[in-house]
Amino acid sequence: MPRSARALRAPLLALLCIALFGWPWVTGTPGLLNLLTGGVIWGLFALSYHLVLGWTGEISFGHSLWFGAGMYGTALLLQATRVDALPGILLAAVALVPLALLVHLLSLRLRGPYFAMITFALAEFAGLLVQNATSLTGGTNGLTGVPISPDLAAPGTLYLSASLLLIAAVAAVLWLRGTRVGLVARAVRDNPTRAALFGHSEVWAKTLTLGGASLLAAIAGGLFLCYQGMAFPAAFGSDTSFTVLLMATIGGADSAWGAAVAGIGLYALENSLTATTSHWGLLLGVVYIAVVRFLPGGLGGLWRRVGASRGRAVTTGAILESSDQSAPRGGLLR
């Protein structure tokens, strides 16, 4: 990428962050603050999906599992102990990591479409479990009356904490991308066989990356619990997974900040639109098709094209192509 674009980037991003922070304070409208808080949390969730899509090259249709697990984990923790909300969220998320690693290690016995399907099945199954364990989770009604300590109860502080977490997470992901960890992840994504020759196990690299993705998703889930004041089983639903997949796709599979921005934007769009139309799903579907058609590199690709007219956009399709999707398959008649 030409130097001019790179030089432009940092100040622009800083400006973006300041605007993100300052805007609701300046205008002082509670509605906007509310909308942006939800958006920032989903931005974090979308960023976690960027790790799945952009770093491992796999598609998960069950990323909602970790969002929901973080949400319910935090809720149960806050109910059972006196811990403050923010540490509670982080604690619950970290506690979920070993489980996440185990689940990913198992799921990664499969790749490509099979991996996508198993993630979908596991998330659906977890949602059903949560709905049926009524005594613990409140069943289909969700879990209400979770005690949320003042550190995250006020809209302003929740917004601030969520924004800081998001910015820290984007920075961490961008920094990691340049380190050995990021290089290995991409090497494994693009050519697992060759990476294996250099001693990098595809399964382990992907398991760890997905573990990181689950951690961020669980934090987003915990924040969303504080935002909504309750845990609800739809968090595990396929709509949640499809929406976050769309966010990361709009952001551009190869762009961390693109995912975050798309998360904020799409959430805000959805929630300002649901006031006027109840057919969000229709729009979501149209956006899916349109993005694939007209914005194959996502926001990240667009940015690169604007910043450097010669930069090549990395499309989601291309990443999914280059990642080895050699799935097991059988002959039609055997």
Binding site: P113, G285, Y288, I289, V292, G317
Partner: peptide, 12 residues
């Protein structure tokens, strides 16, 4: 473009 096709069928 398998990735694009999956996303499109999801949209449909």
């Amino acid at each position: 473009n398998v990735g694009g096709q999956i996303l499109t069928t999801l949209g449909v």
